[in-house]
Computed example of a mutant assay.
Amino acid sequence: MEPISPNIDVQEKISFVSTGLVLRSFTFSLAVFLIVHAISLGVWRLFVDSRLAVWKYSPQPFGMYLFWGILVLVFIGFNFNMAGFSALKQPVRGCVATVLTFALAFLLPATLVYGYGALDSAFSAVGGTGYGAVGLIVLIGFYGFGILATGMAGWPWSDSGLSPVLSGFAQLVSGCCLTGLGYFLLIYPSISTASAPHAILLPLPVAIGWFYSVIVAWLTTFLIFDNWPWSMLRRKSHMALAALVGNFLLGTALYGVHLALLRWVLIPPDAIEKIGEMFPSWPAQLGVWIAFWLIFWANVAGNWPNRFGMGTNRVIRAASCWSLGLISFVVYTRWFSAAVLHEAEIVPGFGGDPLTWVDLLNYVMLIYVVYFQFYGLSRK
């Protein structure tokens, strides 16, 4: 499968020009993996590392700007299908798109924190409380904007005859509605500082862990399963609505499975006790590793395998991504986070914050794949 496309009906329109070093499939995937990790580690050393950072902005506001960078990339790369950049050649195209993404990733959340935050203290920069509140918008928005461009194939705007730019704006408005609804139902009641209490639909840790499981379900069905089972529906509107709602059902099942894995296999009992009431959010910490491999598998590794029957292909892909996700989680929490990234341990031999590091990996990977189109490398 080509890089995540805003419309599964027009994926063939996205092409990559063979430039630079030509590598066989496995070597190509390994090279991209190493490039993404090297760049991410460089960024980490500059801004995040508790021992070695040149400019330390972690955990906030680095996390907030990072998350919004991912959301802006969804806007430009998926909802707008890189409209306005196609006339530029690489690497100029990638550089211009990246600079614009960085600018918007700073401008949009800063407007909320330093502007709207003066009206609502939940979003205020005073004491840093607003950084997390604004960053959590991306948790909902990644699905709210992303599902429109992928599993829903841009419906209903892709069938309206609108130009790519107008269709992108229409998706942007729709994504704002979905994101706003989800945020004010799931997140805002738990962080609001208003004198009148809000009814809390789900405790915040549960909302974070459960919703990230929904994101994993969406990425799995679209990337690894080729939008199955929703693609079985013939009418585009039915497929789009089934994808929008169905991922919540699958995500709920995944949330239960991930909680059980974390409690009984992946996290030591003393660490669970130390994590305490935040434990229900940890499916997000596991889910982000699985999401990394889902995105990598479909966009870098060529969605291997493709030689067997469709059902067999999908089972092998899913098993590969989940296995790598679980292994990565264990290696990260028990060694890499403390030894390489210098993150704090929760208990001796276990710790770290996977969401920040892996989202940085995802951000760098998507910039290289979507904006730069693997510039400098080609798959043989």
Rank of each mutant, 00 (worst) to 15 (best):
V99E: 06
N303K: 13
G151L: 10
F292Q: 03
V126S: 14
A253C: 12
A105V: 08
F80D: 05
P59Q: 03
I200W: 00
L23V: 08
S190F: 00
G127R: 08
G146N: 12
I224P: 02
L324R: 02
N7V: 14
A318Q: 03
P91I: 02
K380P: 10
S5R: 14
G154V: 07
P189N: 08
L341G: 11
V330N: 01
C176E: 09
A105N: 03
N247S: 09
P164V: 07
M82S: 06
F80M: 09
Y143E: 11
K13H: 12
V36L: 06
G63E: 09
L73N: 10
L233D: 03
Y143C: 06
C321Q: 03
L326D: 01
Y57L: 15
N227L: 08
F329E: 02
V32A: 01
L139C: 04
L172V: 05
F67P: 02
L73C: 10
G130Y: 07
M310Q: 10
K236A: 09
W44K: 10
L23N: 05
I8C: 11
M365L: 15
G352I: 03
S195P: 00
T129Q: 12
T252G: 11
V369T: 08
L34F: 13
F123I: 11
K56S: 12
Q285G: 07
G349V: 01
Y212S: 06
H258G: 01
K13D: 15
F85D: 04
W297E: 15
I147M: 09
G246W: 07
L377E: 01
I76V: 15
S328T: 05
W230P: 08
S167C: 11
I208C: 03
A103F: 13
L162P: 14
G161E: 08
D159C: 12
W322T: 14
D9E: 15
K56V: 04
Y332P: 02
S40N: 05
A240C: 11
W304A: 08
G182N: 14
G351Q: 07
A339F: 02
S163L: 09
A319W: 01
F248V: 11
M310P: 06
G209Q: 05
F28E: 05
L166Y: 09
S167Q: 15
M1I: 14
A217I: 12
W335K: 04
G180S: 04
P205N: 00
S195K: 10
P268F: 05
V54Y: 04
N299R: 00
Q11L: 15
A97T: 06
Y143D: 07
R45W: 06
S192C: 00
F225Y: 14
S5E: 14
V173D: 07
S58R: 07
G151Y: 10
S29L: 04
F28W: 04
V126G: 11
L30V: 13
P348T: 02
G77L: 07
T98F: 10
W218D: 14
W228M: 09
V22Y: 02
L341F: 11
H37V: 13
E2D: 13
G376P: 01
V74Q: 13
I35E: 07
V32W: 04
S213T: 01
F329A: 06
S58I: 03
S213H: 05
I4M: 15
A339P: 00
F102I: 15
G146Y: 11
K274T: 14
E343D: 08
G63D: 12
